[in-house]
Structures are given as structure tokens and as C-alpha cells.
Design a protein around this nucleic acid. Structure first.
Length: 268
DNA sequence: TACCAGGTAAAAA
DNA sequence: TTTTTACATGGT
């Protein structure tokens, strides 16, 4: 057990709210203040600590992955300064001080998770995703490793339907697993090319590409304007405006802004 | 019971 | 080309 320092202020409980808000998340398991997450084949336990988080085990392999999981790539200092001059963000940033959006560590997991959340409520999506994780993932001590691309490439569509996917979504998952999309190349491409590659795959549309840019790659300008939750949050905080154009107001912090808007709706 | 929920592709018009 | 429809589950 060792302390991983993080830029302050940092609110660990608030930043991990997403892992509890829609029921348990078997791949990012919260238990008594401890976040359990399998990284690179080992279960890592993360808890709040002064100046950062306690991480066990903390070594040269887990350190960068935990940093990424906890959203270290986001420039929160610059965002805080920007938010102070914005009528909408200033009160939100004050109320949610120390919130740093987590990132999905793995591109495959990010895309499959998005497929589970297409069209249905997040409560429903989490329930279905958990059953997929139990059925095809690997349990460590507490948390599960998310099902790998290789495992789902060999799964049948009927097996995936059995955990609650629609037949169509089961086709999407197996088709993506068997596609020639190189997930490791995406991080080196500009936003537009990432979106083009993703939307070229059946079952992955603009919404999925936007959230991949936002929650896996942490791209500053990502702004999922088509998302229903984003539309609700924009209406709540900005009124009846064009959602896509509303993102310009937060340039160059669209990604952090959309996370603050969404969490602002969920956390009183 | 019926309806909606952080979409997408394919059919129909 | 634009509009409509099917999809499956969980919460209310």
C-alpha cells in the first residue's frame, strides 16, 4: 500500500460516483470506500488518502494505469480557472470541487460498454453489462476483469442474448470483436479520424464515437451532443438552446464541462 | 399496464 | 433523400 499523489483538490468519493450511481459495477467495484479494479491482470485496490489515493499494489505497471483510470490526463487546474469566469460552470465547479472524471482504461471495454447503453436506461445497461461480465469475464478477488475481445470473438450470439442483449446488439458485439478495427491505433489519431474509424463498424454510431473520445481518450473537445442525458443537462443549465452549438461556450473544455453538467444533475 | 430510457441500422415512404 | 420502425430490459 502506497500513496499516489494527485493534483489537489481531489474528491475521490465524488469522482467515483459513476461506479455506484446506477447500481454496482462489477468491473469497477465499490465496497466500503474502496474501489476494486483489475488492471493488467491484477486486482488493484484504491481508497481516499490525504493528497491523493492509497493504491495497493502500487508499482511501475499499476501507477500509470491508476492515474489514467482516475482521469489524471484532464487539466483540472486550467478548467477551474476557466469555470470561474462562466456563469453556468462557476457554481457547478464550486459545488463539485475536486471532481475529476474517471477514464475507461481499455478501448474494447469502452466500446462494448457503449453498446450496452445504447437506447436503454443506464440502470438497465448496468444490469445487462454486469451479467455479461459475470458470464464472460474473469473474477479476481472481488472485481472482475472485463471480458476480453478474444473471449467475445469466440462467443455465440445466442450466449450474449442469454445475458440480456438484443439479438441486434449481440451481432454488434461479436461483429466488433471479429472486425479488423485496430483499437490500439486510435489513440494516435485526431478526433475526426477516430470517429470515422469507429462509425465504420456496424453498431457503432456518432454517439458511441463521441463517448469513446470523451471517456476513453479523454479528448478535451469531446461533446456528445446527441446524448439524451447531455440534452437534459444542457436544458437544465442553459435553457432551450441548440445543444451542439452550446458546446462552443465551453471551448476548449467541452469534455470536462459535459461531465460537470451531468454529475451536477445527479449529485444534489 | 404502459411508457420511457445516455442509439443504430434497415425498411418504408 | 427523409421518415419510421424494431429492438429487449429495468424502473416507475
Amino acid at each position: 500500500m502506497a500513496v499516489l499523489s494527485l493534483p489537489q483538490p481531489y474528491d475521490f468519493a465524488l469522482s467515483t460516483e459513476r461506479f455506484r450511481a446506477f447500481g454496482p459495477d462489477l468491473a469497477n467495484l465499490w465496497s466500503d470506500g474502496i474501489l476494486h479494479r483489475v488492471l493488467d491482470g491484477r486486482e488493484v485496490r484504491i481508497a481516499a488518502a490525504p493528497g491523493g489515493v492509497d493504491v495497493d499494489p502500487l508499482d511501475d505497471v499499476t501507477r500509470p494505469q491508476v492515474e489514467r483510470l482516475l482521469g489524471l490526463p484532464f487539466d483540472l487546474d486550467a478548467f477551474r480557472a476557466f469555470a470561474a469566469g462562466d456563469d453556468v460552470l462557476a457554481p457547478l465547479e464550486g459545488r463539485l470541487r475536486g471532481f475529476r472524471p474517471p477514464l475507461v482504461p481499455d478501448p474494447w471495454e469502452a466500446l462494448v460498454t457503449s453498446i450496452t447503453a445504447q437506447q436503454v436506461s443506464l440502470f438497465s445497461a448496468f444490469a445487462i453489462r454486469n451479467r455479461l461480465i459475470e458470464r464472460f469475464g474473469v473474477r479476481h478477488e472481488d472485481a472482475y476483469a472485463f471480458p476480453t475481445r478474444e473471449r467475445l470473438r469466440d462467443a455465440t450470439e445466442a450466449e450474449i442474448v442469454a445475458v440480456g442483449f438484443s439479438r441486434r446488439k449481440a451481432e454488434y458485439v461479436v461483429g466488433l470483436a471479429r472486425s479488423d478495427l485496430d483499437l490500439d491505433e486510435l489513440a494516435g489519431l485526431p478526433d475526426e479520424e477516430v470517429a470515422e474509424r469507429i462509425t465504420a463498424v456496424r453498431g457503432l454510431g456518432a454517439w458511441t464515437a463521441d463517448w469513446f473520445l470523451a471517456r476513453h481518450l479523454g479528448r478535451p473537445h469531446a461533446w456528445p451532443a446527441g446524448d439524451l442525458g447531455v440534452r437534459k443537462a444542457v436544458e437544465r443549465y442553459l435553457g432551450q438552446v441548440d445543444v451542439r452549438e452550446a458546446g462552443d461556450r465551453f471551448e476548449p473544455f467541452q469534455n470536462l464541462a459535459v461531465h460537470y453538467l451531468l454529475v451536477g444533475l445527479r449529485v444534489p
